[in-house]
Simulated scan of single mutants.
Amino acid sequence: MMKLRLAAILPAVAMAALAVPMATATPAAAHANCGTGASDKDGGSWGKWADGANQRSGSSTGCGINGVAYSTHRLDYHCYTVGNDGYSWTYLRNDSTGVTGWVRDDLLSNGGSYTPC
């Protein structure tokens, strides 16, 4: 009969534990239709920016443009969602212009908000 040593079993147990999904993660809300806003759930500080990114009325390039965020503007991220295009989008307020809107996260510094809507 073959004996298993504890040292041989522990790596397998550790790998199995990594394969279990974490239940504590909160999924992002679904696509934000054109004309949809979101409350400020992201308590992060300012200092975020975009370089000529369109602020849209929903999480889609098919939604109207409310304004444009530039690198000289101060942005306040509110939360993020996942658009129908599969990209994540952050709802934000441009404190330099007062305009709110959705910007695709790959166009934002820090990759956008980390707080789901």
Rank of each mutant, 00 (worst) to 15 (best):
A12W: 05
A12I: 14
A12G: 03
A14P: 00
M15T: 08
A16Y: 03
A16D: 00
A16N: 00
A17L: 15
A19V: 13
V20N: 03
V20A: 09
P21T: 09
P21H: 02
P21L: 12
M22C: 07
M22N: 14
T24K: 10
T24G: 11
T24L: 06
T24F: 10
A25P: 01
A25R: 15
P27G: 03
P27H: 09
A28H: 13
A28G: 04
A29S: 12
H31A: 12
A32T: 06
A32C: 13
N33Y: 13
C34I: 09
C34Y: 12
G35A: 02
T36D: 11
T36C: 01
A38K: 05
A38R: 10
K41W: 11
D42W: 06
D42P: 01
D42T: 05
D42H: 08
G43L: 11
G44Q: 13
W46P: 00
K48I: 03
A50C: 08
G52M: 12
G52Q: 13
A53P: 00
R56I: 08
R56C: 06
S57N: 13
S57K: 05
G58N: 10
S60C: 10
S60V: 14
T61Q: 10
T61R: 09
C63G: 04
G64N: 13
G64T: 14
I65T: 15
N66P: 01
N66Y: 02
N66I: 00
G67Q: 01
V68D: 00
A69S: 15
A69E: 05
A69F: 04
Y70H: 07
Y70N: 15
S71M: 07
S71T: 14
S71F: 13
T72C: 07
T72V: 09
H73E: 10
R74I: 08
R74G: 01
L75A: 01
L75S: 01
L75Y: 04
H78T: 00
H78E: 08
H78C: 04
C79G: 07
C79H: 12
C79M: 07
Y80V: 03
Y80L: 01
T81C: 15
V82G: 01
V82I: 14
G83S: 12
G83W: 03
N84H: 08
N84M: 08
D85R: 02
S88N: 15
W89K: 05
W89E: 02
W89T: 05
T90R: 06
Y91Q: 02
Y91T: 02
L92P: 00
L92R: 03
R93V: 10
N94E: 05
N94I: 14
D95N: 14
D95V: 09
D95P: 00
S96T: 15
S96E: 11
V99C: 10
V99I: 15
V99F: 05
V99Y: 02
V99M: 09
G101I: 11
W102I: 13
V103H: 04
R104K: 15
D105C: 11
D106H: 11
L107W: 08
L107G: 04
L108C: 06
S109N: 14
S109F: 07
N110F: 14
